[in-house]
Nucleic acid binder design. Structure first.
Lengths: 206, 206
DNA sequence: CACTCTGTCAAACGACTGTTTGAAGGATAC
DNA sequence: GTATCCTTCAAACAGTCGTTTGACAGAGTG
């Protein structure tokens, strides 16, 4: 007697993702989540153990894929001798763009990710750093080779700025509203193009 | 029998600002706020009417000043014929930097502001847009004169990116951790310098 | 003196929070 | 057949939420 073809776990994850994006981790209750997922309230604690673990699983489901795509794009570019700074930025930004375009809530997930930045919750930050920090460090190494005029500290400063701008842009928090005729897909693609151009110029600045 | 020289209202606003920065608007309860402010629970509803109004007052207390400083810095630069793009960016960024360095919680407020971006709460967004949108529009006009090679849509895209980067940089969400000997003041000043240089290059990109 | 206004207080309101429980259903294994 | 496992369910748990209440103190005014 399921209202959907998806399993209970998948439906909870999808509903949680959408509601965390809209109301935040504290603002979205498990009753809201389970109602939206058409699932019994107790199912969350049965399948995930706690709300805290549910939050982590919402991240894991998407970030495993996102980081794999980023790493693949990065190592693919590394093998080419003529890879440009724009290529490396693209390897970082395009997977996030593609995820945000994914049907079944990828766009909502980018907003969840942006919220995670704003959360000073130690457990959540450690979880993200422990599980996904290594890919970011690989990007730093490649950028370091491509931008020899920047010392390590300067590079960190600038990548920090890029990461902030990316998060903000992909989460669609900006003041730029889509016009009537423009699809969400096209809007985000343009955002990624602008971001790559802007960030490349900023990184190359003396 | 006050625990502080400040009035009840001021103490509530200060405690709310700090706790909203750390736990978010939904995550920080009025009981936490009033306990931190050393004030009776009912004082919030007596002085502010509701939690929602308290949130707005937390913004109003700082943003009135921030926007006045930005506008003053902008019009001061407009009168000089040799004002550069960096000057205009500085007029936008430096007031935020100074606020974030303010003792009595300016740094916490920048984190609150960053959280507001992540909130899709319609009422809060409308409040911010209605009360502080006009200053942003003035900056757009000045940037438009300084960057004639960008059409209006392109300019909006890039300023959106700048706003996102500024928000995250000032909120101190980045991965760059202050080193032991560096004061928070010095850290934020360096962040502003990097941001101006990065954004100027990004805006000038063809 | 009485009267009003302002601010603070403990206590309570009903609604909502995350989590746990024990019963029940349905599938699979022996 | 019985037994076991996995999953779902309504109901209840203790606690917290934002808000309201009515009493009480102190200052200001007549």
């Amino acid at each position: 007697m399921n209202a959907s073809q998806f399993s209970t776990k998948q439906r909870i994850l999808g509903a949680a993702e959408a509601l965390f994006a809209r109301y935040g981790f504290a603002g979205a209750s498990l009753r809201q989540v389970t109602a939206a997922a058409n699932v019994n309230l107790a199912a969350v604690n049965y399948h995930f153990g706690s709300k805290e673990n549910l939050i982590e699983e919402v991240f894991r489901r998407r970030l495993d894929d996102l980081n794999a795509r980023r790493q693949a794009a990065l190592t693919k570019g590394e093998k080419r001798a003529d890879a440009t700074l724009e290529d490396t930025l693209d390897a970082f930004i395009r997977p996030a763009l593609e995820l945000s375009l994914d049907r079944s809530g990828g766009g909502a997930f980018m907003r969840v990710l942006a919220r995670a930045y704003a959360e000073h919750d130690d457990r959540l930050r450690r979880f993200l750093s422990d599980n996904y920090g290594h890919v970011l460090r690989e990007f730093v190494v490649v950028f370091h080779h491509m931008l020899p005029h920047l010392d390590k500290e300067e590079l960190y400063w600038r990548l920090d700025i890029v990461a902030g701008a990316l998060t903000y842009a992909m989460a669609d928090f900006g003041v730029i509203k889509r016009k009537g005729g423009v699809s969400e897909q096209h809007h985000r693609e343009r955002a990624a193009e602008h971001l790559v151009r802007f960030a490349a110029a900023g990184l190359r600045a003396p």
